[in-house]
Every structure is written in structure tokens, then in C-alpha cells.
Design a binder for these strands. Structure first.
Lengths: 357, 357
DNA sequence: AGCATCGCCTGAACCGGTTCGGACGGACCG
DNA sequence: CGGTCCGTCCGAACCGGTTCAGGCGATGCT
């Protein structure tokens, strides 16, 4: 009775065994009306007996649907090691497509040229019904590319170019505002920002949000350093900030992710600063280790799983709407990320301590 | 000239435009011999003009190949956040399948029942040509399930049950031996081991390797704690070890991954120990932050990207061999992981320091 | 000249589903 | 008793490729 000892049953086998035609079997499988109860029962029994399951490929061909959504990520392998976003995000996608046997098809590519090619291949090979567009960049050419390819798309956050695709957004601007408000309330006047590469939209938006929030709170315009989300980048940026002469040196640093923030705290401590007395540090993302380092990290808790879930849900809706549907689906806004205050932030020391290296 | 304004070209369109039959076009596309150069040129031109790309679904149907490999992971979303294995591993898979437009189809499931169902769906829906089996457990039922389903399989490490599937193995036993040799050379006599859940084969094998290696080096049989690879678990296990009375308390702890190890160092330092003087710590995996914590972590550098690459390569070979091929492919062994000695290991203090909490 | 050989290409069958026009038969009605 | 109507089911066409037996014309050989 194992499945391997015989060729897999097809809809024709089921029809023969049930004494009906293929068409009828198909009706039953997609439970459409117009089949007599007795016939339906015979078909169901035959399906059961034969352990029949329709072939995805054949369905895909006749329905011209792939029952899969795509995700293309351009990242160098090295940065994947510490990526805390991507895995739960994909798990969320999975959750979001629901129990429809819809799968997530994944493509990692090395650079942005390969990225376009990957999207092309996905679209033209009809491997997916739609894609989600992550890691949006400024003037992102992929938005137009996908519109051209006619591939239903959901973007992660709203692009800075016109796009008719729905966006699933999380409120990183609000998150940054919470961070700055927290620091301002503690009494900080000079803050610095260590962000990601500015060609990424989210990096730029967070940077802008930090600029605006510091100004709104009446803080001094702070120093900005653009890093690359890696621990090494965070360490280097921190050295740079601590090398500033005391009058400019920040009493609090806001980092673009927790990896850089943790590396930053270690650098600061190694240079003799006592945290959070001599320097407050805030991360972004709430990585698992962040609660376990010393001092434990004040950070913003994002929820990539929920993000993925919502993105998938939106995309599935979009696909089912069909391409000729005129109504442009509206953007979805996730719950605002929450600031998690831990031990790495405190009021600034009254008189800045000279570092004793 | 955009692709979206007209229905996508099919092989029939190409044939018509080139003035040949579908069959000939197909020959050209798969560059098979028996087509006159002039005809071939006409077809190629037509393909170019129409921007034709064959439909993956139609190919899949007539070739009964899916051009995709599957990966099913049973992990709770919470642990994905800090997972440093999975993302680079999938990127490696991607790399390993090569430029064949073969994709990686991903399924995240919550529990092990859902896992079996996911494999069934993948096999019976013919969505994938083969799967890689990760996170092997003791007496893993999936090995038999996949054999039953007749789905080409590659396992990550060799299962403890009979399996005719090739395994792609990395030498974690050798890695643990290096760790213990390092600690023994430093003069440690009492080591402890904080591993993962023992139902995972790799956790058990590393534990066994540690037992054997400590015995071989003439060390005292050490305390074992089974944790769960999370920071919290690592912290708890560390407390447990440091609560032992001095005569039993280890001078060095070997952790099953870096997350637990980092959490462990923080716990130890918080309890007043000075590292590495009072306690040596070794991790496993070389997470990105491990070089940036204090003391920087001695650990074992594994290479999930290479592992994925090799697994995909092996699986693709296996698929192309065909199901009736008698020769069982041999196991592949990756380069041994390398011990990275950093600052968290040192000779034990001559007289154990009492902790000053 | 007659015939085998060969290279090139066509046409139809096939993969495994979905869809739909229309055939069939029974109930209902006038 | 003849005609409608409705529920049920069949059969064929179709999705877009691949494969292969066979046709056809040109060439080589005796």
C-alpha cells in the first residue's frame, strides 16, 4: 500500500474507478454543484482508495496559476549569517498564504543585475502568481519592472516612486520618534545616528525621522554615520563617534539595528566608558541576544513574522482579484513597533567623563 | 514593447513566426541536433522578437519535473529570530542548484505532524523534484516517509536509521574534539557541556563526541546540561553550572551554539566572575556578534552556506540520475570546521576564585 | 536508373488537469 | 400524449510544452 510501488494515480484512474468521466471528477474535487450525491460519493471513495492528489503542474497549466508567491533577495552571503529579519519574515509569509497549498518560492541572488533577471525568470516562466518586494531602494527600478511584467506585487513599505501595488508598511518613523522622545526625556541633548546604507529606503526614512524628531524636541543637530548593518560597521562607526572632541561627542547613539548597537556597546566599554552612565545606546529590531548583553539593550521591537503574514495575505487577495480588477487595494499599516526600554539608556552624566583608555 | 500589453507568447506563436512546427522550435530551444542552421537561426530570431520564454508549468507537466527542490523546516517562529544557520544555508542551496532555473521551495511548519503533511503535499502535488532533510532527529520517521513517497532526498548528516539517501555531512565530531583538545592543552580538568535537545541527532552526536573526547584526554567526566539553543536556555544552564559546589564546578564550558555561549558569558560576568580567568567559554557556529562581545568568543566556525551548496549539488545530481538508477550515491563530507581561538578561553586560575556576587 | 541512406522537418499523441456545449432521461405540464 | 424544463453527466477541446514515428527530398552507391 505504499505510494512508491506504483505509478501515481491520475484523475483518469479515479474516473475509471468511479465509473464516471474526468470532467465529473474535476467537478467533485473543486466541489462545484451539479453532481448527484451518489456520484459524488463514488468519486470521493475512489479518490480515497487511490490516494489521489491532483498534480500541481497540471493545475498550474490549465488554470495558469502557480500557487506560489516569490521572494527575491539580493544579499551577500556574509550578511545573511546575522540576519534576524529574513527567516521569521519568510515564516510569516508561509503563515499568511494560509492553508491554501500555496508555497513560497525563494531566490537569493548576489547582485542587483541578477535580481532583475530573477524576477524576469519568475514572471516569464510563470513560476509564481505574485511577488513581494523587500529591501526597497531609492528610485527602485524594480517597481517599474514588475509593473511591466504584469506581476502582482506587494511592496514592503511605500516606494518613493509611483506604484500601483499595495504596500504593507510598518511604522519605523513612529518608532524612531519614540526613541528620540525617550532620549530627550532622559535629558540627552546630543545624540548621534548610526544607520544603514542610504540607498535603502528604510535606512533613509529612519534617518530622516531621527533628524526631524531631534529638531522637534529641540535637540542639537546630531552627527550621522552611515554604516552597513554589520557588527564591524557598527564598531567602526562607534569609534568614529567617540573620537569626536568632547563638545561634539554624543551622549546617546541610535543604531539602525541591534547588531551594530551591540558591537557599539562593546567598543565603548572597551574604550573605558561605563554604560549607560557615559553613553546611552539604542538598537533596532530586538534581536535575541539584546536582552542578554550587558547592559541589556534598549531597542525597538519589530515583528517580521507579522509583517510577512500581512504581506502574504495582501498578495493573495491581490492575486485572487485578478489582473483586470480596477480597484487599487489600499495600503496596510501594521501596528506600531514598541520601544523596549532596558538598561542601556539612562540620563547623561552631568559632566562628561573623559575616557580612560 | 512592454511585456504586459499583450498576452504572453507561446511556442505556437514562435513556430508560426518562424514558419516551422512546434516540434522544431522545441528542438532548437533544448539545443538538440537535427535542425538545419538556417532554420535554427529563424527560430532563434523569432524567440528574440517575441521575447519568448517557455512556461515552467507546461514543461513541468510534460517532463514531469518541477525544477525545484524543497526544504521543510519545523521551527517555532520565536527561535527563527536568532537562527544564524538557516538563512545562509538556503542561500547556499540556491547557489548549489546552479544556473539551472531551479528554485528552492520553502515550507515552514509549526509542528512535526504538519511537517509530514507538508512533505506529502510536496511529493503528491509534484511541486518539487527532491527535498533536503534538515534537523535530523533520533529515529527520524521522515527518512522512511520520504523513501515511501519515492522522493529523492539528501539528508544533512547521516541518520541513525537505515537510509538509502546520500548524506552531506559536516564533521562536528571532529570540531568538538578540537575544542576539547584546546581546553585540555590549556590545562582544564573539569569541563561542562551545554547542548541542545537530545532528540536532535546533531545535539546528541556532539554530546557524545564531547564525552568521548574528555575521556580520551583524561579529563574528569563533566556535567552535562541539555538546553534549547536559545539565549534564555543558555543563561539558565549557566546558572545551574555556577551553582554547583566548587569541587564540581567546571573551569570551562562548551556550548552547543554561540547564542547560548554569549548568554552564558554575560551570566557569569554578572555573577562576578572575570572571564576568561575564572571561566573559559567555547561556542559553536561563529555568529556574527561572537567576535564583538567581551571577551570575544572562542568558537567553531561552521559554514552553512557551503553546506547548503553541497547539499543542493548532491540533490540535483541525484535527481538527474533518475529513480531507477541502482548506484547509491556516496555520502559527501565537508571540510572540517575550524576552531577559532579568541579571548574567552585561557588556562584555569590556579585556585578557583570564589564568586563575589 | 534504381535503391538505400541520411538529414531535416512535420504532425499527432501525450502529460494531467479544467471547462463547457450539448446529449440524455425523467418529471412536470397542458 | 407531445413538449418543456431541469438535473446530471459525457466527451472533446484546451492549457503549452516534449517526443517520436514517419514523410520527403537530396545525395551516394551500384
Amino acid at each position: 500500500m505504499t505510494a512508491s510501488d506504483r505509478r501515481r494515480a491520475t484523475i483518469t484512474d479515479v474516473a475509471r474507478r468511479a465509473g464516471t468521466s474526468k470532467g465529473t471528477v474535476s467537478m467533485v474535487l473543486n466541489d462545484r454543484p451539479g453532481v448527484a450525491p451518489a456520484t459524488r460519493a463514488r468519486v470521493v471513495a475512489a479518490v480515497q482508495d487511490l490516494g489521489f492528489r491532483p498534480s500541481g503542474a497540471a493545475r498550474a497549466l490549465s488554470l495558469s496559476r502557480a500557487d506560489a508567491i516569490g521572494l527575491v533577495l539580493a544579499r551577500v552571503p556574509a550578511t545573511l549569517r546575522s540576519d534576524s529579519f529574513y527567516a521569521p519574515f519568510v515564516a510569516g509569509l508561509e503563515q499568511g498564504v494560509g492553508h491554501a497549498d500555496c508555497a513560497v518560492l525563494l531566490r537569493f541572488v548576489a547582485d542587483e543585475a541578477a535580481e532583475a533577471a530573477a524576477y524576469r525568470a519568475l514572471a516569464e516562466g510563470r513560476r509564481v502568481d505574485g511577488v513581494v518586494l523587500a529591501d526597497l531602494r531609492c528610485d527602485d527600478p524594480r517597481v517599474d519592472l514588475l509593473a511591466d511584467l504584469g506581476l502582482p506585487t506587494v511592496t514592503l513599505n511605500r516606494p518613493d516612486v509611483p506604484s500601483s501595488a499595495p504596500a504593507v508598511c510598518h511604522d519605523d518613523v513612529g518608532a524612531v520618534e519614540q526613541v528620540v522622545a525617550h532620549l530627550a526625556a532622559l535629558g540627552h541633548r546630543r545624540t548621534a545616528y548610526v544607520g544603514g546604507p542610504l540607498r535603502y529606503l528604510h535606512a533613509r526614512r529612519r534617518r530622516d525621522a531621527w533628524r526631524r524628531a531631534t529638531r522637534d524636541h529641540g535637540l542639537a543637530p546630531g552627527v550621522e554615520v552611515s554604516a552597513d548593518f554589520t557588527a564591524e560597521g557598527g564598531a567602526r562607526a562607534t569609534h568614529e563617534l567617540l573620537d569626536l572632541r568632547p563638545a561634539q561627542r554624543p551622549t546617546a547613539v541610535v543604531y539602525g539595528n541591534d547588531t551594530m548597537a551591540v558591537a557599539g556597546t562593546v567598543v565603548a566599554q572597551h574604550r573605558g566608558l561605563v554604560l549607560p552612565r557615559d553613553l546611552s545606546v539604542v538598537g533596532f529590531d530586538d534581536g535575541e541576544l539584546s536582552a542578554y548583553v550587558r547592559p541589556s539593550l534598549t531597542t525597538v521591537r519589530t515583528d517580521p513574522f507579522a509583517w510577512g503574514e500581512q504581506a502574504a495575505r495582501t498578495l493573495v487577495d491581490l492575486v485572487h482579484l485578478g489582473p483586470d480588477h480596477a480597484a487599487v487595494p489600499t495600503d496596510v499599516h501594521l501596528d506600531a513597533p514598541r520601544l523596549v526600554v532596558r538598561d542601556s539608556t539612562a540620563p547623561p552624566a552631568a559632566h562628561p567623563i573623559e575616557e580612560t583608555r
